[in-house]
């Protein structure tokens, strides 16, 4: 299977007046296959958002190249096809909405790519349904909650039927309820075959993906399936990242000499291990 996103030795820095601006990304090599659910974690300034913007041609690499379904992002004639392939949901829900009603905002992308008006109705309806905004079609955006606005932003992206959707810290400005709905939508989109890339600084959210990439100071430090990552998770502290609570507990209990297995693959397994130890007679 051909990877849908390929980063080939990508280096990036912003063009500024300074003589030698620092590299924001250093020699990134990365392949993402269709249908994957990948999280990219890192602190502010680790280069993770820049990475996202390179993946749909909003930024172009300084050195190396980024390929989307075999198209190079620096190609002017392919760029619109690339943007249709890779959709992007941003951080601030407020600043992504263009139109003065929910359905008109969803229509915006369709209008941009020249979909015939009669075909739009159906697509808009499906997008509204996919994010659970039924009944809000005629609402003005400012009457929506933060979580609802972010769902609208997602609807505006999925209506273009992209293969890949990048969530660039899209949960970070929401309350717990809003965050939970967005995470659920991500999972359901992935189940329906979309490639999901979730950029976040929350380890807990990152562990919901199947694969996790750690960015630190512009470099890719770790790229591993989350199931296999559990025993290495304490290393996340090296890059100033949080460690999921259950792993911290597992680590502490092991240090106290509990006979816990070397490997756990998820929270459920840890809970049943604890239960097994406590109830063994």
């Amino acid at each position: 299977m051909e990877p849908i996103i390929q980063f080939e030795h990508v280096w990036f820095r912003y063009q500024v007046d300074e003589p030698d601006p620092p590299w924001v990304l250093k020699d990134i090599r990365l392949n993402i296959d269709p249908g994957e659910y990948v999280s990219i974690v890192g602190n502010n300034g680790s280069g993770k958002s820049t990475l996202a913007r390179l993946a749909n041609g909003l930024l172009l690499p300084t050195k190396g190249r980024v390929m989307i379904s075999g198209m190079e992002t620096s190609s002017e004639q392919d760029i619109w096809q690339i943007r249709r392939t890779v959709g992007m949901v941003f951080q601030n829900p407020e600043n992504q909405i263009v139109a003065t009603s929910v359905e008109d905002d969803i229509a915006f992308g369709l209008e941009n790519i020249g979909v015939p008006p009669l075909q739009m109705e159906e697509k808009i309806k499906n997008a509204v349904k996919a994010v659970g905004l039924e009944g809000f079609e005629h609402h003005e955006p400012h009457t929506l909650s933060g979580g609802q606005k972010q769902r609208l932003a997602i609807a505006g992206v999925i209506v273009l039927e992209p293969d890949v959707i990048i969530f660039d810290e899209s949960t970070s400005m929401l309350d717990p309820v809003g965050r939970k709905t967005i995470l659920e939508i991500m999972q359901s989109l992935n189940r329906r075959g979309k490639t999901i890339i979730h950029i976040t600084h929350s380890a807990e959210e990152a562990f919901m993906a199947d694969r996790m990439i750690v960015m630190h100071q512009g470099e890719c430090k770790l790229d591993e399936a989350t199931g296999r990552l559990y025993q290495e998770a304490m290393r996340l502290k090296e890059w100033e990242l949080d460690v999921p609570l259950e792993i911290e507990l597992w680590d502490r209990l092991r240090q106290k000499g509990w006979p816990l297995p070397d490997k756990i693959i998820n929270k459920e397994e840890l809970v049943s291990e604890i239960w097994r130890l406590l109830s063994r007679t």
Partner: peptide, 12 residues
Amino acid sequence: VSQLVAKINEQL
């Protein structure tokens, strides 16, 4: 932590 406690308690 409370959530984890609840999860463990489901089995205890």
